[in-house]
Design a protein around this nucleic acid. Structure first.
Lengths: 121, 121
DNA sequence: TTTAACTGATACGGTTCCGTAACGATTGTC
DNA sequence: GACAATCGTTACGGAACCGTATCAGTTAAA
């Protein structure tokens, strides 16, 4: 296994983006918006705690945007909310088993379509 | 430049997806849905002609889904519609200069965040 | 203790999208 | 010519989302 930087052509990058989105649309998973994906992956990839305010700042969007996205993703079981007992103004966004599986399937979908790419030194 | 297949780890794939979506949300471009992205890139990457019915079949969605997406992307100037003179039942979806620039900027955004990936033999 | 600052949620009017069903227009068939 | 098949669009009620403004609850400061 060799670590190197990869220089992708425009056509290769677009081909990857195209095939992955086609797969995401065609499968049975719910199609999340770009904002929802950004929130979901921030929660699952970055270190907790995750609050509404922090997510809003991270995405550079308003707080209601986060609240609405959490409502929808909460119904889907992808994330959950809990009051912060140390500061009851805060709400802590937490990961779920179902959400972790969703993220894993997303990674699989992307990986499948990223198999043939050009690598340069 | 060496052509080889790339084996990406789950963390690397998710990190790419995360950073690109964060960038897409934070920039000034309108956030397209997964279906809109799939339609847009199909129109710009695959050979014409592109009809509503063909796009619906390609994405495995109903025709009104395509019509609605074309309405919205048409207002954004990303695609345009024209009647097929040879068979006036058909509508031909066409590329626009503005749409081509949008796709190009999308490719740039993805490329920027795909610079550090692990490549294997 | 009164006030200010801060949190996340809610309300508002408007837009987009959802799936399903029906529609007018055009073309092909008998 | 009459009829069916095919095209894309529209209609429908319901849901989600948009940006903005405001809200109640909690904490910190005066």
């Amino acid at each position: 296994m060799v670590r190197m930087s990869i220089q992708l052509t425009t056509a290769e990058v677009l081909g990857l983006w195209h095939s992955v989105h086609l797969a995401l649309v065609r499968d049975d998973e719910p199609d999340l918006s770009a904002r929802q994906i950004a929130i979901l992956l921030t929660v699952y990839l970055e270190a907790p705690p995750h609050t509404v305010r922090a997510l809003a700042a991270r995405l550079d969007v308003s707080k209601p945007v986060i609240t609405r996205a959490l409502d929808t993703m909460g119904k889907l079981g992808l994330v959950s909310r809990r009051r912060d007992e140390k500061d009851k103004r805060n709400v802590l966004i937490q990961r779920t088993v179902e959400g972790a599986l969703f993220v894993e399937r997303l990674a699989d979908t992307v990986s499948v379509h990223a198999k043939e790419l050009r690598a340069g030194p």
